[in-house]
Amino acid sequence: MNEDKTFNIAQVVASTGNGGLERHACDLASGLVAQGHQVSFLTTSAVAPRVPKGVRPVILSLDGNRRNPLVLLELIRTLRAGKFDIIHAQGSKAAQ
């Protein structure tokens, strides 16, 4: 990666838990912010309070049915509006 370039990164975490996946995503977000990147954490209201300092939490209805067209539309609109350079979906629910 070019060290002179900073990226606008979206991390999508569609879980409601407090386990390893969520900790890993938070650690990754913290590391990216420490390197000077902008990170937005697109997640549920259950995970948002644990988003690390310097990371922008974006609460979405991701804890519902992942195949719900309204949930997908909300996610797509948020991703497009954010003009992200990188979108990282954490876990199988977010990746689907």
Rank of each mutant, 00 (worst) to 15 (best):
1 M>Q: 13
3 E>W: 11
6 T>S: 11
7 F>R: 08
7 F>Q: 07
8 N>K: 13
9 I>K: 03
9 I>S: 07
9 I>G: 07
9 I>V: 15
10 A>S: 07
12 V>F: 03
12 V>A: 05
13 V>D: 03
13 V>K: 06
13 V>E: 11
14 A>V: 01
14 A>R: 05
15 S>P: 06
15 S>L: 12
15 S>N: 15
18 N>H: 14
18 N>I: 10
18 N>V: 11
18 N>C: 10
18 N>Q: 13
19 G>P: 00
19 G>M: 00
20 G>H: 00
21 L>G: 13
21 L>S: 13
22 E>G: 06
23 R>D: 05
23 R>F: 04
23 R>P: 02
24 H>E: 04
27 D>H: 08
27 D>A: 08
28 L>P: 00
28 L>W: 00
29 A>M: 01
31 G>D: 03
31 G>S: 06
31 G>W: 00
31 G>E: 07
32 L>I: 03
33 V>I: 02
33 V>H: 02
35 Q>M: 11
35 Q>E: 15
35 Q>S: 13
36 G>D: 03
36 G>W: 02
38 Q>T: 13
38 Q>H: 10
38 Q>R: 12
40 S>A: 09
41 F>P: 01
42 L>N: 03
42 L>D: 05
42 L>M: 06
43 T>F: 03
43 T>M: 07
43 T>E: 08
47 V>C: 06
47 V>I: 15
47 V>S: 11
48 A>T: 01
48 A>D: 05
49 P>S: 06
50 R>Q: 15
50 R>C: 10
50 R>S: 15
50 R>M: 13
50 R>E: 14
51 V>M: 10
51 V>A: 13
52 P>Y: 01
52 P>T: 01
52 P>V: 01
54 G>P: 03
56 R>I: 14
56 R>E: 13
58 V>P: 04
60 L>M: 13
61 S>V: 07
61 S>W: 09
61 S>L: 14
62 L>W: 02
64 G>R: 15
64 G>S: 13
64 G>N: 15
65 N>L: 12
65 N>C: 14
65 N>W: 14
65 N>R: 11
66 R>K: 15
66 R>D: 07
67 R>S: 12
67 R>I: 09
68 N>T: 02
68 N>F: 08
69 P>D: 01
70 L>T: 11
72 L>S: 09
72 L>Q: 15
72 L>R: 14
72 L>A: 09
73 L>H: 09
73 L>R: 10
73 L>P: 04
74 E>S: 14
74 E>H: 10
75 L>Q: 09
76 I>A: 10
76 I>G: 06
76 I>P: 03
77 R>V: 07
77 R>E: 10
78 T>R: 10
78 T>C: 15
78 T>L: 07
79 L>I: 10
80 R>L: 13
80 R>E: 06
80 R>G: 08
81 A>W: 08
81 A>M: 09
81 A>T: 06
82 G>A: 07
82 G>T: 01
83 K>E: 12
84 F>C: 05
84 F>E: 07
84 F>G: 06
85 D>S: 09
86 I>C: 09
87 I>A: 11
87 I>W: 09
87 I>P: 08
88 H>M: 03
89 A>Q: 08
89 A>L: 11
90 Q>W: 04
93 K>F: 06
94 A>H: 01
96 Q>W: 12
